[in-house]
Amino acid sequence: MIIHTPKPVLEVHDLTVSYNSKPVLWSVDITIPEGVLAGIIGPNGAGKSTLIKAIMGLLPMASGFVKVFDKPLEEVRQRISYVPQRESVDWDFPASVFDVVLMGRYGKLGLFKKPNAEDRDIAMSSLEKLGMANYATRQISQLSGGQQQRVFLARALAQQADVYFMDEPFAGVDVATETAIIELLKELRAEGKTVLVVHHDLQTVTEYFDWLIMLNMKLVASGPSEKVFTKELLQETYGGRLTILSKIGDLLKNEQFPIRER
């Protein structure tokens, strides 16, 4: 069940993504309305992170296009914020918590310019929103997993964007952090921002999200939670791989075959 929306904030059209010629996401079509808190769910290897990485332009698309606010991504980067998985960086890097949060301002600053007092204020209040103000001068290698995640979210907030893509912000964090994050997400939604979150925990799905994207190498469903969070669709999402689809993927990889003729 794929429910489309007339004036989408995010439009993904016929998106296919391959790793080493093997498609991991097949022809995904999604439209997301403004101001929703959307969860991206699916089993391991379903392509959840791949989807947002491809939308952010971090992975090449084998087919399709992405539009945000009806424009190509490059034109609206300033309005989009991305929170990578926290394992994706080396936390031994010589930087303080504040240094990292200030990076959220770099996109707006442009080349050669140094962050000014206003940028610092924004970074500090972003840290405050995540209850991390006391940690501003702390070296990042001393943070716990939950604190690392809060730092990444504060950095994203400092961008003052309108759309947020978050890759597993709830993975491996403590209960207090999870609560703090979900409060923040609801606050963002109340401000009319759109948030897409890769999520793992089915228990909390309906409580957290009002829109769901259900993936398993293909798009199973996309729509309001109350409509798509059904037994049948969950069964389809989590009930194992489509054997023939996987087989074709392996063939493409083994033969190094292109997914589009071109």
């Binding site: 990485k53 952010m56 332009g57 971090l58 490059e74 980067r77 300033q78 989009i80 914020s81 991305y82 990578p84 994706s88 960086v89 080396d90 890097f93 930087a95 990292v100 990076m103 770099y106 996109g107 950095r155 961008q159």
Partner: peptide, 10 residues
Amino acid sequence: FDKGYAVSLG
């Protein structure tokens, strides 16, 4: 520190 994030900032 974080190349992917640098890409996402444009």
